[in-house]
Design a protein around this nucleic acid. Structure first.
Lengths: 254, 254
DNA sequence: CGAAATCTTGAACATGATCAAGCGCGGTGG
DNA sequence: CCACCGCGCTTGATCATGTTCAAGATTTCG
């Protein structure tokens, strides 16, 4: 059994060629020039698919790979010895995972698939070439890391200083906005997330999360159905949380 | 009055030459090769000093600069409209600030000096050259961003899932360890931090923070004096919080 | 159809927030 | 030199937000 199979996933030859990458067609993302596209095509060594609930990366592992999500949802998390879990952020198409592990040798958090997920697999060993020959891509990598940092800053503010209601409002607005940008929640689709996931992200208990979500539902800001959450009024949620999102355009990815 | 003077700071010609940078001499940091050192010398366009309590960077500003702390302590924070403040992380010698602003145009958090601070000032405009000509430094920048991300992950876990006592234990162990690595708390020096700062980092009220610190002091883990905190038993604090720190060596900086 | 998740709700409890007041020390000005 | 002032630390009392426990409803899936 290979490491990949242990993950309940399947490593396969690349099916989606970078030239036809569906992400590049979304205006949300920046475009490559032909030379970069060529390199990225070579950088990508395969695809990995994982079922919902499968582990993609595990804390403590010395992962040799770097991934970009091509389709599906996942989440990054850490757990304490006694099982308390904190979800750090969600991962959607275009997001990079495993950078920490690639640069610093060891993963300090785990990643789990929330839905069925397809990942582009990159060879860590070629990172050096990327930095040496493709400064624009290197710049993008740094940009991506800085973006994640910004998101974590926001979450920290939220968990540290916002009330449960504000926190939940902020998180759902945040998730919905990101999902929209990736084309994941067009025409009334739901966020494929359980209340337990939200609780573990918000730093609240499951019971209190449920009661808090009920209040938001009573205010017609969201609606819970089919094991997921439909955001009805993103602006209302933002207002509740006192959150204004800095708009991002031409965002890089690899 | 220039922007710099508004900060209660003073922009001066570089006094400390990179060739004699005191940070490079600490084994904690990685060394440059002569070529890199040469570039960094040119990249550095001056020094900024700021008094304790002065603002170094302000949320919303379009900062043109990137800084590395040469001496002193500062902290990054965000505030909500009604004044609730969350400290995101502390900044010590060797740490870089303003990367988010440099890459993405606008600062999403503020930075304030905790003690008198000396900063190396870098010209944002030359970042492009850095990425084009010095891939190792570019790699370091990415590494630095990934490191900050790792730290924020830890803090998020702490605030989201640890009790007040565990949280305080973790934070003080974390700060003390970092300060030691930078040579800031040799021979019984104290962390130059008020209980209000700790409260705003922990996401707790001032009163509760005080009561929590008292418990730690009763257990002889720390000692409060001269407006600062002396950590008496770092290992004890780590154990209390259930925290094991991954050791870092040859850490990059710019 | 039964089993396993997931969501929901009420009640008792605990952790941490808020309010209020006092203390101690260093700095300032008379 | 001393009195006063202000900031930061301390402490008790009361209050509120969120946790834990317990149980039932609902949905999904084998």
């Amino acid at each position: 059994m290979t490491a990949v199979e242990k993950r309940n996933g399947e490593l396969i030859a690349a099916r989606t060629r970078c030239e036809h990458c569906p992400l590049r067609q979304r205006e949300h993302f920046r475009d490559f020039d032909p030379d970069e596209l060529d390199f990225v095509s070579q950088f990508k060594t395969g695809e990995l698919t994982a079922d919902a609930g499968a582990s993609i990366l595990v804390e403590g592992a010395h992962s040799a790979h770097l991934f970009t999500v091509l389709a599906g949802w996942a989440f990054r998390y850490k757990i304490l010895e006694d099982g308390r879990r904190q979800i750090l952020n969600f991962v959607m198409p275009g997001d990079l995972i495993g950078l920490q592990g690639s640069l610093m040798g060891e993963m300090q958090h785990s990643v789990e698939a929330l839905t069925a997920v397809t990942l582009c697999v990159f060879e860590r060993g070629r990172l050096r070439t990327l930095f040496e020959k493709y400064p624009d891509l290197a710049y993008d990598l740094t940009w991506i890391a800085a973006r994640e940092e910004r998101i974590l800053d926001e979450h920290l503010l939220s968990i540290g200083r916002r009330s449960a209601l504000e926190r939940a409002g902020y998180l759902l607005a945040f998730l919905n906005r990101r999902a929209r940008a990736c084309g994941l929640v067009e025409h009334g689709k739901i966020l494929p997330i359980s209340q337990q996931h939200l609780a573990d992200t918000l730093g609240l208990s499951l019971v209190h999360t449920n009661k808090t979500l009920r209040k938001l539902a009573d205010r017609k800001l969201l609606h819970w159905r089919e094991r997921g959450c439909e955001v009805l009024d993103e602006d209302g949620l933002c207002e509740l949380a006192g959150w204004v999102d800095p708009v991002t355009r031409g965002r890089p990815f690899i």
